[in-house]
Design a protein around this nucleic acid. Structure first.
Lengths: 142, 142
DNA sequence: GCGTTTAGTGGGGAATTGTGGGAAAAGTTT
DNA sequence: AAACTTTTCCCACAATTCCCCACTAAACGC
């Protein structure tokens, strides 16, 4: 389970540390620290899956009936997906195309989301949160 | 049950003592001193749940129909949620992102609210109370 | 009132986490 | 094939967090 929010900095080489809490979740939950990072059409951010979760997602997609939307989804999500193993310090290199897509510059936010986690540019995250706040205020739980 | 108001100070390392009354409530009520601290959209403060209550809340949210408001709510509440166990002195470290959100600086107010409790910056709390007072004056009970 | 207990606070030191940079390895270009 | 860029791997330092001990002040009991 990935939970909590963490903020780290990308260095000049384009590397960011995966928060230790998430690395632990990877290892204890899956015994395998490989992860897949890709785009998501729903938000201007990246998403990261443990290997096993990624395969499940892939299997679900493979089982679907073809459609223009599915093809589009695949191009966004599948084609940019790549496998990463953090270096000994727990960092991964975010490739330029994914950096551009998510407009990640220096400040990087990691947000746990259960089976996966999101990777945001800090500024985009702050903006998103602000507008979410306005929306969520109108949402009464009971 | 969490009730009453308590004021403690955050130290330079970002730690605050959970009021003893609340720690007791955690242990005797739930036999488990883990707690989940997160944001709330309704007030500029944090909220803390005993583990069991948090799971209930999570389950309720998971069962709801998707909507933009729900997604916003989830990002505010769920994504920042993290589990904490007080240290031997009964303190927890409030992470920077949550400190920023609630503008907690040094003085910290704890306010019991039944199944959970709120964590306020002292000054925000005082202001809130003042405006609540003005509002409540216009409210005749009978 | 006086000793005893409990709550809150401060701080030291070890361990963990995050960051910067150097050098080897791999991949490109001319 | 040489020059160059990019990626990978490793070492080292700095900052943060965690865990423990100790002190002070308030609350409690007799």
């Amino acid at each position: 389970m990935f939970q909590g929010e963490f903020s780290n900095n990308m260095d000049d080489k384009g590397r960011v540390s995966i928060p230790a809490a998430f690395r632990d979740a990877l290892r204890t939950g899956h015994g395998d620290d490989r992860l897949v990072i890709t785009r998501t059409p729903y938000n201007p951010c990246l998403v990261a899956y443990p290997m096993r979760e990624w395969k499940k997602l892939q299997a679900r997609i493979a089982a679907m009936r073809p459609s223009p939307e599915l093809r589009a989804y695949k191009r966004i999500v599948i084609s940019s997906a790549q496998e990463y193993t953090p270096d000994r310090q727990g960092r991964v290199l975010i490739p330029q195309t994914l950096r551009d897509y998510s407009s990640i510059q220096k400040g990087v936010m990691f947000a746990g989301a259960g089976e996966f986690f999101e990777i945001w540019d800090k500024e985009s995250w702050d903006k998103q949160l602000e507008s979410d706040l306005a929306l969520a205020r109108n949402f009464e739980l009971d």
